[in-house]
């Protein structure tokens, strides 16, 4: 049997008041210290290239979308969030999506689409905020998903760095 002895209180402790004063002094000391709260909408969350935010489509430097609507990401998506409808173009790369929708309410930000894409067309951005008044507004279409390549460059470099490491390991 284990008997835990109770600590014998000194007179000052049994009188409460000196200890109360000590406690008050402690909290008063904290009073003037700098708050550590993040003031969220004004001070956004810190993000870096590792941040896996919402997926976005790359627009190449010539202004055309990099996606060729092959449907790999659509198949890779475990949440069935992506819907693609492809169409023909008369450019050298002959296909582009006529419809590309990601249902942001279904998207689980897993990054499988980014891995599956053979054309470096879809990348996880650092955009994290997602709020609207209707469900329909949160099904993002081609217009809402387009991002210039420069905006996603940091993530692209990071993904390349990662895959280079895997290639070396093989």
């Amino acid at each position: 049997m284990v008997v835990v002895g109770r600590k014998e209180l000194t007179l000052a402790e049994r009188l409460y008041l000196p200890e109360v004063m000590r406690g008050l002094a402690l909290t008063f000391g904290k009073f003037f210290e700098k708050p550590i709260t993040r003031q969220y909408p004004e001070e956004p969350l810190p993000t870096d290239e590792v941040t896996r935010g919402q997926p976005r489509l790359v627009v190449k430097d010539d202004g055309n979308i990099a996606c060729v609507s092959c449907g790999m990401c659509e198949i890779a998506c475990p949440a069935y969030a992506i819907t693609i409808d492809g169409g023909e173009t008369d450019r050298a790369i002959e296909r582009e999506p006529k419809k590309f929708e990601i249902d942001m309410l279904r998207c689980i930000l897993c990054g499988f689409c980014e891995e599956a894409c053979p054309k470096d067309a879809i990348f996880m951005s650092n955009e994290l905020e997602l709020a609207d008044y209707t469900r329909a507004a949160l099904v993002y279409d081609l217009e809402k998903l387009r991002r210039p390549k420069s905006a996603l460059q940091r993530r692209i470099d990071y993904v390349y760095k990662l895959s280079a490491r895997w290639r070396r390991a093989k």
Binding site: T27, K30, F31, F32, E33, K34, P35, I36, T37, Q39
Partner: peptide, 10 residues
């Protein structure tokens, strides 16, 4: 306010 200041909040 006071409770916040004592707990490093705003």
């Amino acid at each position: 306010k006071v409770s916040a200041w004592m707990q490093y909040r705003y």
